[in-house]
Design a protein around this nucleic acid. Structure first.
Lengths: 366, 366
DNA sequence: GTCGTTGCTGGTAGCGCTGTCAACGTTCCT
DNA sequence: AGGAACGTTGACAGCGCTACCAGCAACGAC
């Protein structure tokens, strides 16, 4: 006998078509391009599909159409708060669309990234989101040869592969240092961990700002390749103090480190900001709640992920954005930890960070 | 002409087979069950595949074999640190296996979970990881009808659908309260946010422990459905203090809240632990670094995700675990914030949490 | 009335892989 | 030596869907 009904009783497109009294191909069209159908058939297919509870077989669709409805996402860390915000933005944007997210963790290794990219590309994804601009030459070549839209996220730079959304970490760091200068600080240390390309560019921004003011000294910089943590912030700060006991401010490459520095100051009974000012990076939620509240550079992480995925889906559907490179900028959120004129009224008992003074800057101008 | 080579120049299994001098089906077997091949053919196919850079077409494989190599993961949050650790464990375990992870965010909604479950199941996943034990009746029925292995994670309870891995949040909370009792605390407040089922069970554990000691009062409990944050910890603690100014300890349903409480104490110049002790939950990294270091209940999140995925893959491959329900337990990590006999030597300047006293308990005994 | 043009529909032929089963050669047993 | 048992291999026929192109009706232009 032919294939009247599959053994598992699964509803196929053919069953839907039969019930609707149309050919399978017409039923197929209903799901891909309903406008191409006459209104009569459209409603017939729709009700037939609902009645039977039809669910399309994605594997068959992918095989027949030679493309998948998968968006590949390559990020360097699953643990880092920064990426969980970006991810949430991506997932939120993908919801409701017909695309699904395939996530992979490069663990900050561009070799691993290259390997994963090769895997992804082999499955002909509908689109790709990759982190940063520091791919291997091989990865770069694969990306350029890929026949799907691609968004690079987290930072902006020259020569986008396709689309790009992020901000200038260099400018953001310079803005943070400029803020510290404005508060009268001069001997400003830098504390950084992991030292991935983006942290490196924050360091570059710090160095250039310090050099501009003729204040740079290599001894002010303490970094490590170790992954970041709050505890590490304390450790690195301890190293920094041992080298340069008379610093008057610390710029931390991220907020975890900043929190660690704050705790270490407390442990050592160093007054913040009176003796040492602290500035973090990313503006995680807790920064506004710490005592003293901690200055940080706010980055639009959720928006970055969300916009990247939205742009990508638009591009996949043939509507390329007018503006392929998007600078989401940053804001220096000035709080107590770096305020020279500390408010004389005691901090309110709750509702920390009552009135954050903001220094907003689109990257590219500082 | 036949199909000598596909237009895109893609390498198909047929090409590999041709180069290796075997039939396509033999080449296919090489990738699925190499042991079934003679050593000679095995090496021939292997080198042919390498030479051509063959990458299998997953869609075709899924269509022909009627099953996918996708593991569906349903978690309630992408942002919560707790889940990022679990996720990392899952992704790490999936790497190297031939299964890929398909992640979806239920946003703490069991209705959303039901919807996503329906979507997943329609694609015949190889396995499923779901969070918790509080599915809708409909979800439960779907899970039980699913013909793939399933692991419930994050907690353990009666009637597993299939496999289960987690710990007793109820027992963990009781252990935390027992610890506070042992330190001489009596008037212990509870602060909780989001109040998802697991937080609710921590509250239940707290209530039962307090009732056992005839110390329970409803006024000691402050909760909200709002998602958790450090700032919220301060707010809820403020509410608690307003109601019960003479509490001597706070048990926080998670570490973010605990940090918020700590900051609020600092703002109010309440000495921790002398005036008020603080205990958190999950033992995130920063707890050991805070000043004072913060007591917490350590949970094995990475291990939970990692073991769940490992067990699942084993089960998919036909090797069901001898023990389908796994209790990963917890440990009360006693630190300064709840220590009645505070160490008289000043805390070391760095390396916080030098010697954490641990109270380890497999859940189920307290 | 005839001829294009447009809009909608259907037939045919796979997409690349694997399940099933038959067939082959080899080894081992009696 | 004969036969069973095993290990290995290949032919065939789809999996459920869609690309491609042909066909057909309806309509307007001349």
């Amino acid at each position: 006998m032919g294939r009247k009904r599959t053994k598992s009783g699964k509803i196929r497109l053919a069953e839907v078509a039969e019930l609707a009294g149309v050919s399978p191909i017409t039923a197929s069209r209903f799901f891909r391009n309903p406008e191409a159908l006459s209104v009569a058939k459209r409603t017939r297919v729709e009700s037939a599909a609902n009645e039977l509870g039809y669910v399309p077989n994605l594997a068959a669709r992918a095989l027949a159409s030679q493309r998948t409805e998968v968006i590949g996402v390559l990020i360097p860390s699953l643990t880092n708060n920064v990426f969980s915000d970006v991810l949430r933005g991506i997932y939120d944007a993908s919801e409701g669309s017909r695309y699904s997210i395939q996530l992979s963790n490069t663990r900050y290794s561009i070799l691993q990234e290259e390997k994963l990219l090769r895997l992804f590309l082999a499955q002909k994804p509908a689109g790709l989101i990759v982190t940063g601009i520091d791919q291997t030459a091989e990865s770069r070549a694969m990306l350029e040869a890929a026949d799907c839209p691609i968004v690079q996220i987290m930072e902006i730079g020259p020569n986008p592969v396709d689309m790009m959304i992020g901000f200038s970490h260099y400018d953001a760091a310079r803005a943070a240092i400029a803020h510290l200068f404005a508060q009268g600080h001069r001997k400003i240390g830098f504390v950084g961990a992991r030292m991935d390309p983006r942290v490196q560019r924050r360091l570059d921004g710090y160095v250039s700002a310090m050099k501009d003011a003729a204040l740079f000294e290599q001894r002010l910089v303490v970094t490590t390749a170790t992954p970041t943590s709050v505890t590490l912030g304390g450790t690195l700060f301890t190293d920094l103090l041992a080298r340069e006991p008379d610093i008057d401010a610390v710029f931390c490459a991220n907020d975890d480190l900043a929190l660690g520095v704050l705790f270490e100051c407390r442990r050592r009974e160093i007054a913040v900001p009176e003796q040492i000012a602290i500035v973090g990076f990313n503006d995680l939620e807790f920064m506004a709640s710490a005592v003293p509240t901690l200055t940080s550079v706010r980055t639009n992480r959720y928006e970055m992920g969300n916009t990247a995925a939205t742009m990508l889906i638009e591009a996949i559907d043939g509507r390329r954005p007018e503006q392929p490179v998007l600078d989401l900028g940053f804001k220096v959120i000035e709080r107590q930890s770096s305020s020279s004129r500390r408010s004389d009224d005691r901090p309110a008992a709750s509702g920390a960070g009552a009135a954050n003074k903001m220094i907003a800057l689109p990257s590219g101008q500082d």
